[in-house]
Design a protein around this nucleic acid. Structure first.
Lengths: 131, 131
DNA sequence: ACCTCATATTCTCTTAACGGAATATGAATG
DNA sequence: CATTCATATTCCGTTAAGAGAATATGAGGT
């Protein structure tokens, strides 16, 4: 993975917000869309961009498509995601996003704030993302 | 300084090379231009971009314009520059740039490879950048 | 088989980035 | 004060990014 490519992925605020949310675990598009409060096309396109450049991967789970950070991440990417996380920790917008996500997942899977982390599909089969 | 702004500055290879070289100390445009082996306009524009976004500062020294990393750098920037340096250490292109710069400075100020670090103007008054 | 839901792709428009050629600026020097 | 040197700015053409509307795809449910 080329270094510039990483920065190109990081140089858009929407993509930073997406990565910030994905740091905590896999998510489907509709959750991301809700938390960011953006149009479906925009979110989908940015996720596609991240996927084409190898920062995230996508799998199907029933009707949903689950995105997660690439695993294992190449070392340059790991470093940069860690650096990003250090910074976003102190930035209100990103903290709010995380809070909104936590709340959204509470609604969805009350058994735990990140119950889906180990079994991502569980998020979507317990309750529908948009009931 | 906004986070996205940092990434926007870092998402171009030429700018990464410039920052890599400036990590070691202040430099004039002509040295950078020589090491990168690029046109004057391109180098000047990229430096201008970095300056407008607050990553570097510029001062006049006689006929030359000396660029250096902003001092003191805001914390997010410090972190990212450190991260960048960690990565570039292992990338041939950036290492070659550093070697070429060292060689160029040898020609220019034989008293030491980074003689200009403490007294940047000395680089340019001992010998002309392009004799 | 049809329908719906979640998501992706295409199209179009606007805007920004990049490179190079030509030109402008401003300091130093004869 | 005219010239030279180092650098910046402007202009132009090309290319890529981003947003939104409309449409396509593909899996599940009826």
């Amino acid at each position: 993975m080329r270094l510039v490519e990483i920065y190109q992925c990081l140089c858009d605020e929407t993509r930073l917000r997406l990565l910030n949310l994905l740091q905590a675990g896999p998510l489907c598009v509709c959750h991301l869309q809700e938390v960011l409060d953006m149009g479906q096309v925009a979110v989908s396109k940015h996720l596609g961009y991240l996927r084409r450049h190898g920062l995230v991967t996508a799998t199907r789970e029933g009707k949903w498509r689950i995105y997660r950070l690439v695993e294992p991440a190449p070392p340059e990417l790991r470093r940069h995601l860690a650096c990003l996380q250090d910074c976003t920790r102190e930035i209100p917008l990103f903290c709010e996003d995380q809070r909104r996500l936590a709340a959204r997942l509470q609604d969805c899977c009350p058994s735990g704030p990140r119950a889906g982390t180990r079994e991502p599909s569980a998020i979507h089969f317990r309750t529908k993302p948009n009931p």
